[in-house]
Simulated assay, not measured.
Amino acid sequence: MAPPERPAGSRRGRRNDPDRRDRIIDACLAVIARAGVAGTSHRKVAAEAGVPLGAMTYYFGNMDELLREAFTRFAETISDRFERRMAFASDAIAARDAVVAIILEDVFGDDRELVLSHELYTLAARQPAYRSITTAWMERSRAALERHFDPATARMLDALIEGLTIHRALDSHQGDSRDVQLAVSRIAAG
Rank of each mutant, 00 (worst) to 15 (best):
H118M: 15
L53T: 05
G109R: 07
M1R: 11
A2R: 06
D64P: 04
E105T: 04
L114W: 01
G61L: 10
Q181R: 14
G36L: 11
D19G: 03
V45R: 00
G50T: 00
H42Y: 08
G175I: 12
A46G: 01
L170G: 09
E139C: 12
A38E: 05
E5R: 03
N16L: 11
A189C: 06
T135Y: 01
R96V: 11
H148A: 12
A124C: 02
N16V: 13
L123Q: 03
P151T: 00
G54Q: 10
R43G: 13
A27I: 02
G54I: 02
A98H: 01
H173K: 00
R142S: 09
E69Q: 13
R96N: 06
T122A: 10
R73E: 04
D171E: 07
Y121E: 11
D19Q: 12
E76N: 01
L116R: 00
R6I: 06
W137Y: 15
E119S: 04
A189D: 15
H148F: 03
A152I: 15
A46Q: 05
E69G: 07
G61H: 09
L182T: 11
A159D: 14
T72E: 15
R155Y: 13
L145I: 07
D150Y: 03
M1Q: 14
D22K: 04
I103V: 14
P52V: 10
L157P: 11
V45H: 00
A101S: 11
A87T: 10
R140G: 15
S185W: 08
V107K: 02
L116Y: 04
A30K: 06
G190L: 15
D22L: 07
A87D: 13
E139F: 08
V31S: 03
E5D: 03
R140E: 09
R23I: 04
R142L: 15
A95C: 04
A154F: 04
R15W: 08
T40N: 11
L120Q: 02
I93V: 06
